[in-house]
């Protein structure tokens, strides 16, 4: 049972960067904008957070810097695609490449630096409770924050008028524009929010999960987050489930290996991907539901005057 509790704690920790990045991208895509720059924004967020945490000695300042850096990079994307009407796919890919290079360059001086990362809460007395203590109280503060963010995003999208407006713009920007919604401004905000979340995902990796900076430390998690949004058919609950499923299956395969299960590790390495795709594909197999949830205008530019 204790192993189970431990696995659960580790699963939440492993899934959290994906939760942040994928939820941010979900909001961006719900407004009809496809930003493939998640990996780049995560890395820029990671390096900014690490640098600021190292300079200031306070990892929370680092987290703020990571959020800011992710948002700043997404602003470049927003200007290019929303104001200058550049192709979203090409710009997003370029943004990833740019972010990977920029973070490597900026981070040169920080590779050797050691920082005190954000520690798990460990509310001593409560976390000491058998099983429940660990599961409920043993996490990193940023893990709790990701759950709050999930609740906030879910509430925003499906319980508020601005959330409805955002989704309407993702469906049909022309109609939303005709009713009088400021399509471009809302899309800007959605892109910035997505960038901030990606930056936060990077910050989580660099100052909380593995407090270190090395080039390319996200190791492809940005691309996994992008895929999660699609396989989860743009629904927040499924994004959350997919992220934890991915993290959980990864850890379960490690547990199996450490426990001496005789399955080739290459096969086990594949499992998180296979399991996540299969599960999400099965729960999302209803074609009508996919059509209803996929933002109809995803990736298409919008000209307010024509």
């Amino acid at each position: 049972m204790d192993v189970f509790a431990e696995l659960l704690v580790l699963t939440l920790a492993a899934g959290t960067p994906l939760v942040y990045a994928a939820l941010g991208e979900l909001v961006t895509e719900k407004s009809g904008v496809l930003n493939l720059g998640v990996e780049g924004m995560m890395l820029v967020g990671a390096v900014a957070s690490f640098a600021v945490a190292a300079k200031s000695g306070n990892p929370w300042f680092g987290v703020a810097a990571g959020i800011g850096a992710g948002a700043a990079l997404s602003l470049v994307f927003a200007v290019l695609t929303l104001s200058l009407m550049a192709n979203q796919v090409a710009t997003g890919l370029a943004l990833s490449l740019f972010g990977i290079g920029l973070s490597a360059f900026v981070g040169l001086d920080y590779v050797s630096v050691v920082i005190e990362g954000i520690q798990p809460l460990g509310i001593a007395t409560l976390a000491g409770l058998p099983i429940v203590g660990k599961i409920v109280f043993g996490h990193n503060p940023l893990v709790y924050l990701s759950l709050l963010l999930f609740a906030a995003i879910h509430g925003f999208l499906y319980r508020t008028r601005p959330g409805l407006a955002l989704r309407a713009i993702g469906e049909s920007p022309q109609s939303a524009h005709a009713i009088g919604y400021p399509v471009v401004r809302i899309r800007y905000l959605a892109v910035l929010f997505g960038g901030a979340c990606s930056g936060l995902a990077g910050a989580y990796l660099a100052v909380a999960y593995t407090p270190l900076w090395v080039e390319g430390m996200t190791a492809g998690r940005g691309w996994i987050a992008l895929a999660l949004v699609v396989f989860a058919t743009w629904r927040p609950w499924r994004v959350l489930a997919g992220a934890y499923l991915f993290g959980g299956v990864t850890l379960a395969t490690f547990q199996a290996q450490a426990g001496g299960v005789a399955v080739p590790s290459q096969l086990l390495s594949m499992l998180p991907y296979v399991a996540t795709i299969v599960v999400l594909a099965v729960i999302s197999r209803d074609a009508t539901a996919i059509r209803l949830n996929a933002p109809a205008s995803l990736g298409r530019p919008f000209h307010p005057d024509g």
């Binding site: 960067p17 990796l205 999960y209 593995t210 270190l212 090395v214 190791a219 990864t250 490690f254």
Partner: peptide, 19 residues
């Protein structure tokens, strides 16, 4: 032993060590 099937992925290395 845990095989992470990657020379370099701090996240996975961390997960494997934690496990």
């Amino acid at each position: 032993v845990i095989w992470v099937n990657s020379w370099f992925d701090p996240g996975r290395e961390r997960e494997a060590a934690d496990t």
